[in-house]
């Protein structure tokens, strides 16, 4: 019975992904089909078109193995080892520097705005 529920919920979630892909191709939207599916799922839940429990258990199970699904694609780096040879080493430095800048910018922005809103609330 549990397995049947899992299969049905999975097909349901897959349907959103399929719909996303379909819309993406039909209207040549320059977004990943999965992101369109993600937005549709969030919209459907927010509009309460169906209850959360319809998808919750399978979504949780699916997400608990998320790193597994991107292993096959990552293994593909085997065909691009030469990219990191010689000058390619700097690519790693670029990624590290840019990541830290991202962290500083987003962290400081959110912290500053969060504190400002808090203090304004306290004044009221």
């Amino acid at each position: 019975m549990k397995f049947l529920i899992f299969i049905l919920q999975f097909i349901f979630i897959y349907g959103f992904f399929f719909l996303g892909q379909l819309l993406c191709e039909l209207f040549s939207i320059p977004l990943p089909g999965s992101i369109i599916g993600f937005m549709l799922m969030f919209a459907a839940l927010s509009l309460k078109l169906f209850p959360l429990r319809f998808v919750e258990s399978t979504a949780t199970l699916l997400l608990s193995f998320l790193p597994l699904y991107f292993i096959p694609a990552t293994v593909g780096v085997i065909e691009y080892f030469d990219v990191f040879a010689g000058k390619g080493f700097f690519l790693i430095a670029v990624v590290i520097i840019s990541t830290l800048l991202t962290m500083a910018a987003s962290g400081l922005t959110s912290q500053y705005l969060g504190r400002r809103i808090e203090s304004r609330k306290e004044q009221e």
């Binding site: 979630i13 990943p32 799922m41 979504a59 699916l62």
Partner: peptide, 9 residues
Amino acid sequence: GPAVVALAI
């Protein structure tokens, strides 16, 4: 793909 959709939950 379906896992990305599941991130909406």
